[in-house]
Design a binder for these strands. Structure first.
Length: 155
DNA sequence: GCCAACGTTGGC
DNA sequence: GCCAACGTTGGC
């Protein structure tokens, strides 16, 4: 069987709800609570252990790509759908008939200097990046090899 | 706080 | 299956 090529992703999070520092503390976390079908599809169908992840802080000052993580599981059932007290509760999603999925994400490193949204917009080679497109609000986005190469070079 | 962009829902 | 109404995201 042919080796699958490593793919790259960007995960958005509001640092007040879950920051890269939180992930550094936890080591690994299940990326639960995603309730958007396109983002779900990426987790369920496309993400594989070893894939690279850029971690982005949204709705904060400054908004920035703050570091690098790694996918360490394939898509699995999102348990938060079962909990009536959870904000992401969805009784239609059950282990027998799963709708919502999560992947495990492992902390790798934090950039000494975050790449702010403003800076990213000025960087050569990132013009097509999903994050920078007008109206783009997907919380899980694919990142191209070239974009990964440019961004993950950051110390 | 505003609002553009987009996704989802539900009436028909 | 269309589409108006509504809700959410997230940059500004």
């Amino acid at each position: 069987m042919a080796e699958r090529k490593r793919q790259y992703w960007l995960l958005k999070s509001e640092p007040t709800s879950y920051s890269l520092d939180d992930l550094k503390r936890d080591g690994t976390t299940a990326w639960t609570g995603v309730r958007n079908y396109q983002a779900r599809n990426y987790m369920r169908d496309d993400m594989k252990p070893g894939d690279g992840v850029l971690f982005y802080h949204s709705s904060t000052d400054p908004m920035a790509i703050v570091g690098v993580c790694e996918i360490t599981s394939v898509g699995k059932f999102d348990e938060t759908a079962l909990d009536p007290k959870d904000h992401h509760y969805d009784p239609k999603s059950t282990p027998q008939n799963p709708i919502w999925f999560a992947v495990d994400v492992k902390y790798k490193r934090t950039f000494a200097e975050p790449i702010t949204l403003t800076e990213a917009k000025s960087m050569k080679g990132l013009e097509k990046m999903v994050l920078l497109q007008k109206g783009s609000r997907l919380s899980i986005q694919p990142v191209t090899d070239k974009e990964w190469e440019i961004i993950s070079k950051r110390k």
